[in-house]
Nucleic acid binder design. Structure first.
Lengths: 234, 234
DNA sequence: CCCCATGGTGACAGATTCGGCACATTTCCG
DNA sequence: CGGAAATGTGCCGAATCTGTCACCATGGGG
């Protein structure tokens, strides 16, 4: 996220059985989640659209609108399609599971479930979304956040140009591999016609300067290009 | 990814039973995946590190090194920690499942499993990773790719400044909500001391100019700030 | 209907960034 | 060791980006 860091994640429970709601609410709250609830499919859909929770636990058996349909509608609209949905159902048959997954559900838990497992699943899904959504890339002392265009080296924020940023990202993504000047021009600059100039070299120097002590990670491979050396932490 | 688009996803199967391997290999290949395999834990770990597959199917019962340990080691190193792991085990007890999830596994499938379900799970996990990894943000005619810093409007590439880009991303992420000038200064500019100038207004104008016909999506909310109007597609 | 707070707009100057060049340095090869 | 090729480095002018200001347009409250 580029935006302000949200302190807590919000989970919406769409479920009609009060016992199940209570069980989930208690455990999710204990794990630090904010909890919303809806007692039927229609209002669940409405709450999801209005509040945009970070995850949804969706019972299949619901009044007003069945869970399958709720899921389908969630997944069919841009603003809610990315919200992970965890299906909750009494039936554990494989056929049901497949149906749920085909609807676009992100995970599936059979009742009776262990609340601990449910919390872990949600945390796992959110962790996965989070690390790739804010799109962090960390190698040793280098930390890159594509979301906020920030680079940190040994914790200190580096002040890089857009080109320098892209250059470093590309080198780090392909760390260990040698990238030719053409590769870099194509991907960092987006050139089609290949400039025959020494632009890449110049920018590499600028980048190295800003990396200070760690400039050594940017290796020159004579006659071939440049490489971000992959260390043991990689 | 900023780099070239990879055509196929690669899945690594770490499993010692030939029957299971064949079943998976067949179905995954049919679904368009490239398949790697390893017959024991140690070599599985090695292959994972060298080839960096897009997903790993990991049996718990393995010669050389147990699946739990393989998973732990995968998750403990930067380069392989982000690879989703799907645990495969004969035991379906809840306790085992929790243990797997706590190890950092991303999903869990009990044997005997339906190959169809397995393929769906992998596709689901990869889809989730993908859409957020390349970090696309699409609303109506707007398409943003944070990976390549590109904005397209009605398919045409827009040439935005870094500030304009961040501004638009922030407004789109929080579309429908009014963002105050302070919100925007804090998140786009990263100011701590709040500039009392009209900087935000000026940049909004510049952004609007570049959006042409679609500038109307950027609404001014008098006395409060700005808002990206959420349309029906959202 | 008028006033004034609020926001839009055009302009501008300073700062930053960029691509390229000339020259220095290094590396490799015979 | 000598020379050629490759790369590092300092620097410059052009282009771009940015914050700010002054002035204009607008609209809501009294």
């Amino acid at each position: 996220m580029t935006g302000p860091t949200t302190a807590k994640h919000t989970v919406l429970i769409i479920e009609d059985e009060p016992d199940v709601i209570d069980l989930l609410r208690l455990n999710l709250a204990k794990a630090g989640f904010r909890v919303l609830e809806a007692r039927d499919g229609l209002s669940g859909l409405a709450v999801a659209r209005e509040k945009r929770p970070d995850a949804i636990i969706l019972d299949l058996m619901l009044p007003e609108m069945r869970g399958e349909e709720v899921c389908r509608q969630l997944k069919s609209r841009g603003s809610t399609a990315a919200i992970p949905v965890i299906m909750l159902t009494a039936k554990a048959q494989a056929s049901e599971r497949v149906a749920g997954l085909e609807l676009g559900a992100d995970d599936y838990v059979a009742k009776p479930f262990s609340p601990r497992e449910m919390v872990l699943r949600i945390q796992g899904i959110l962790r996965r979304l989070e690390t790739s959504a804010s799109d962090r890339l960390a190698v040793g002392p280098f930390e890159i956040d594509r979301g906020s265009f920030e680079v940190r080296l040994d914790g200190a924020k580096l002040d890089l140009t857009v080109i320098e940023f892209k250059l470093l990202v590309m080198l780090m993504e392909k760390r260990g591999r040698v990238l030719s000047r053409e590769d870099l021009l194509r991907d960092v600059w987006g050139y089609h016609r290949l400039s025959n100039s020494r632009t890449v070299d110049t920018h590499m120097r600028r980048l190295r300067t800003k990396l200070g002590d760690h400039a050594a990670r940017l290796e020159t491979v004579r006659s071939h290009g440049y490489r971000f050396r992959a260390g043991q932490e990689d």
